[in-house]
């Protein structure tokens, strides 16, 4: 996993609540057995006017000019601003894969669905929860000023606007540590191999039917 320390990035506002993982990456793209290449199909049904299928040449498809990600001023955005319960729905990790492949490294919202939130960290992305009021402020500022950027600093747990306003955010200490250092979860857990073996032996003695 790549590390995340800090980022200066263009912000794109996606003004919808309850954006679900079916919207982030529609099911037909889940047929891939790979982990990469989902970016061109992120938000496929909103981004394009025709129906997308895996393997299509997306450069020839009809773009939906009304969809915010397609607006010229937001090209190259790496910070996604969203509303509550972002990422609800299925556990598909294809959703964070698609967002990451598209170029997002940070998502800011008042709340996230649990599995999606978790999946982001596994892919070097930082989901940030701010209060609904703060998110609202950011929406207004982003929409008002073309080229609106934010600075996101994970070690300081702070988002800073270009005018110098700062928003602090919370992040779980363990996740922060993993993200800052780009640590692989499996490698970390393997350091507890002996504890797992000890637990397993005890567990087997108590509930042998689990090991049939």
């Amino acid at each position: 996993m790549h590390a995340f320390t800090q980022l200066n990035g263009l912000v794109v506002p996606l003004d919808r609540a309850n954006v679900d993982t079916d919207a982030i990456i529609p099911k037909q793209f889940l047929k891939s057995i790979k982990r990469s290449g989902f970016g061109p199909n992120a938000f496929d049904e909103w981004r394009y006017l025709d129906h997308g299928e895996p393997g299509m040449d997306n450069s020839h498809r009809k773009i939906n000019p009304d969809f915010v990600l397609n607006q010229p001023r937001y090209q190259g955005a790496s910070i996604l601003l969203a509303r509550e319960n972002f990422g609800c729905g299925s556990s598909r990790e294809h959703a964070p894969w698609a967002l990451e492949d598209y170029g997002f490294r940070v998502i800011i919202a008042p709340s996230f669905a649990d599995i999606f939130f978790n999946n982001c960290f596994k892919n070097g992305m930082l989901p940030i929860v701010l209060s609904a009021d703060d998110v609202d402020t950011l929406f207004k500022e982003t929409e008002a000023a073309e080229g609106y950027q934010l600075n996101v600093d994970l070690s300081a747990q702070a988002i800073t606007t270009q005018s110098g306003k700062t928003f602090k955010f919370d992040v779980d200490a363990f996740r922060k540590h993993c993200l800052l250092n780009g640590l692989d979860d499996i490698g970390l857990t393997m350091q507890h191999q002996d504890a797992i073996k000890t637990f397993e032996a005890k567990h087997k003695l108590a509930q042998p039917w689990l090991f049939n």
Partner: peptide
């Protein structure tokens, strides 16, 4: 629990899940 694919791999490799 429903889990993502990275966690599927994690559980396969370690029989454990990191949870709060």
């Amino acid at each position: 629990h429903g889990i993502g694919t990275s966690e599927v791999e994690h559980v396969m490799a370690t029989q454990c899940l990191v949870q709060k």
